[in-house]
Every structure is written in C-alpha cells, then in structure tokens.
C-alpha cells in the first residue's frame, strides 16, 4: 500500500501520461475499426456470399490471440504503436462488422417501404432511417469491441506502444507488486468505467425502445 502511495507522489505525471497513451491508442483503434467495419458490414449485408465470407473470415481472426498478431507484425512494421494499432484493430473489427451485418439484415421491411414511399432518396434513407434503426445492434458491437480493446491494449506495451501495460510489464520485470496493482486495477477501472458510460449513453439513445 505504501508503495502505491509513494508511486503516485513521485510519478503522478508519468501515470497520467500512461493513461492518456492507453486511451489515445484505444480511441484510434476504435475509430479505424468503425470506419472499416460499418461500411463493410452495410455492403456485406446486401449479398449472401459476401456475408458468409466476412463472417467466417472475421470469426476466424477473432480466435487468433492479439499477442500473436502483435509479434507477427514486428518484422513488417517494427515495434511501437503501429503494430499495436493493427493488432487491436483486427480484434475490434469482428464484433462491429458482425453486428452491423445482422442489424442491416433485420431492418423491418414495412418501415423501409414507408420511407421509400414517402420520397426518401437512398442516401437520405440510409442516414435517417436505416442507420438509426440499426444503431442498437451496431452500438452493442462497438461496446464489446471497446471493452476488449481497452483490456487488450495492455499487451501493446509489450512491443513498446506504451499505455498502462507498461506499468504491468515494469512491475513484472522489477518484481514490484505495487506497480502490478496500479496497472491492473487502472485497466480494469478504465474498461469497466467506459463500458458503464457507454451503457448510459445507449439507454439514452434508445429510450424509445424501453418505454411502454
């Protein structure tokens, strides 16, 4: 316990830096994943074949350990945050992609027909009807991905990408239990806290689903 207090007295600035690194890398990964997975999911939902291919491919990618991807990346792009971002993006894409496909395949037909019949163009309908209706499922995928990415970003420190994982690896190397605690608990709080905040936002955005 004393070690923990001492750490924050001397290394608070460093700690905040690590948290920021962790958060930055996670946000970057999630943004890249969404930009890839949501449009890809929408395209895949239109074709049975594309849907099957992407579902199998990404279900397979999902079972490869992130650490393995990290290390495989090193010969090609070296160490640092770049391979970490690639590995974590591969981890984050499947839940978002699969949920996007599912959401777009289950849009209620009468509502889409009403939208068309009211004179909505394709793009207008996508942004004002389809995406809002698909939001709950897509968002659930994003939330799953977020929690996974924050937790797994810890590993990124292993190849020099920084973040709270650095604390854990330092703690392991120096046999400093206090650092292990600080690192581990911080990651847990960050991950659970983000999940909680995302739930609150979800409830707010989908209040139309909850009222009766």
């Amino acid at each position: 316990m004393l070690g923990v207090i001492a750490y924050f007295q001397t290394d608070a600035a460093n700690y905040i830096n690590l948290v920021l690194e962790h958060v930055t890398i996670s946000i970057l990964v999630l943004l890249i994943s969404m930009v890839i997975a949501i449009p890809l999911g929408i395209i895949c939902s239109r074709s049975e074949i594309l849907q099957n291919i992407s579902e199998h491919l990404f279900s397979f990618l999902r079972i490869i350990p992130s650490l393995a991807v990290l290390i495989i990346c090193i010969p090609f792009i070296g160490t640092g945050w770049k391979p970490a971002v690639i590995a974590l993006t591969l981890l984050a894409i499947p839940p978002i992609l699969l949920n996007t496909i599912q959401a777009f395949r289950t849009l209620p037909e009468p509502i889409l027909e009403a939208a068309t019949a009211m004179g909505m163009g394709t793009t207008y309908k996508l942004f004002n009807v389809k995406l809002p209706l698909a939001f709950p499922l897509i968002y659930t995928g994003i939330r799953t991905a977020t929690v996974e990415v924050i937790a797994s970003a810890t590993l990124a420190a292993y190849i020099g990408a920084g973040g709270l994982g650095s604390l854990i690896f330092t703690g392991l190397g120096l046999m400093r239990v206090d650092l292990l605690y600080i690192g581990g608990i911080s990651v847990a709080i960050l991950s659970l806290g983000t999940g909680f905040l995302m739930n609150v936002f979800y409830k707010y955005k989908t209040r139309y689903l909850q009222i009766k």
């Binding site: 009468p110 509502i111 027909e113 009403a114 939208a115 019949a117 009211m118 009807v129 809002p132 139309y208």
Partner: peptide, 14 residues
C-alpha cells in the same frame, strides 16, 4: 406528392 398508408403503419420507431 403521393400519400401512402399501409396496414403495418410503418412509423419510424426512433
């Protein structure tokens, strides 16, 4: 310019 009403109503739930 053509009103359209269907049995399933098709209101936008959101």
């Amino acid at each position: 310019k053509i009103g359209y009403v269907i049995q399933q109503v098709g209101l936008f739930p959101h």
